[in-house]
Design a protein around this nucleic acid. Sequence first.
DNA 1: CGCGACGTTGATTTGCCTCAACGATTGTGG
DNA 2: CCACAATCGTTGAGGCAAATCAACGTCGCG
Lengths: 198, 198
Amino acid sequence: MDLLPLIKHFEHYIALTEDEKYLLHGKISQRVIRRRQFILQDGFPCQHYTFVVEGCFRMFAVDPKGTEHNIQFAAENKWVADIGSFHSGKASGFFIEAIEPSLILQIEKQDLYYLYTNIPKLDRIFKVIVENNYVELQNRVLQTISSTAQERYLTFLDQYPELGLRLPNNQIASYLGITPEFLSKIRKAIASPAPPHA
Amino acid sequence: MDLLPLIKHFEHYIALTEDEKYLLHGKISQRVIRRRQFILQDGFPCQHYTFVVEGCFRMFAVDPKGTEHNIQFAAENKWVADIGSFHSGKASGFFIEAIEPSLILQIEKQDLYYLYTNIPKLDRIFKVIVENNYVELQNRVLQTISSTAQERYLTFLDQYPELGLRLPNNQIASYLGITPEFLSKIRKAIASPAPPHA
DNA sequence: CGCGACGTTGATTTGCCTCAACGATTGTGG
DNA sequence: CCACAATCGTTGAGGCAAATCAACGTCGCG
């Protein structure tokens, strides 16, 4: 098992001592995940914080009509978890599914708590990580309540150019809160040279 | 100056020692804010973390057309700040304005960093606070991309019944991402007994 | 090969916006 | 203390953005 990507990730924030790195061993497990495999399903508690070493995931909810709504993508060096369910132990309302074949590192609740206690730095590191995610999410809320679908799509491409290439359009549509049909029409409008306005 | 509300707030998460409480003095300032007074304006860096002791604030952005979009309310025992701007020192794109006459406690950046260093618990406390806010925001995103305006309004009233009474409807409309006119029509539809469907 | 996932297009419907107008309330300066 | 302005909520007519539904083409894969 190779913890290096995770250690590098932590040290992107604060350097760790050798002792601290040593504490990580045994608390973290590695898994290979196939395309379309779920690492969390609606109705079950979220048992792990998941760090994506390679591949890509989506976290989504299903509404009463059966429509799926992506609330987050997580590719390399991102964390994904239902934080509320993880801490409360209650059933999650979300699914987390691999969009690509993936390699992940996972930490269970009691292990993460152990690490928080024995590597106090981790409190700060995760505080900063969550703060950054919070700022991103705030901007997404702003976009969503203030812009048209086309503007949101262009912002998405601008902010995550790599995801724009990597993900199927129907997944992007679900993230943007629009139908795949309408995203297709937006893409057509963008691609075509300025339409006649007369 | 009375730090008790803030200390109580911190101790809602983890108890502090007397020494730790002592360290807070001198790092926190108290301010009385009038209705409609701004504590952050677009174009300026966010210099403080603000804890609301009494009153209520809104954080909003203004789009190119001049329309305001509320992205957050903060009443008693809530924090409000443009976290991104606070840490980066760059100009904020948000305003924070008092909706009611308010009493706040503020911490400046270097003071907060000082406290993080000397009261390591604070890293954990703020980690938990931000995580909770993150979960709330995630649910808001889900609502926004998956529900109609009426559903979002009912959820808002259910989740923040006190804010539903306290805030003017136009502020709620801005938070929900709809026009005040349309919120008015929603309220009428809700109030009226089940409309005839024939 | 045949099926399922994905993308596209078109016709129609609907949720919400825009604009305009009008009471009710609040607050404020003369 | 009154007059006036500003703020807030409501209502209605008309328009637009995006959803819905249905159909069809393509591709990759078992």
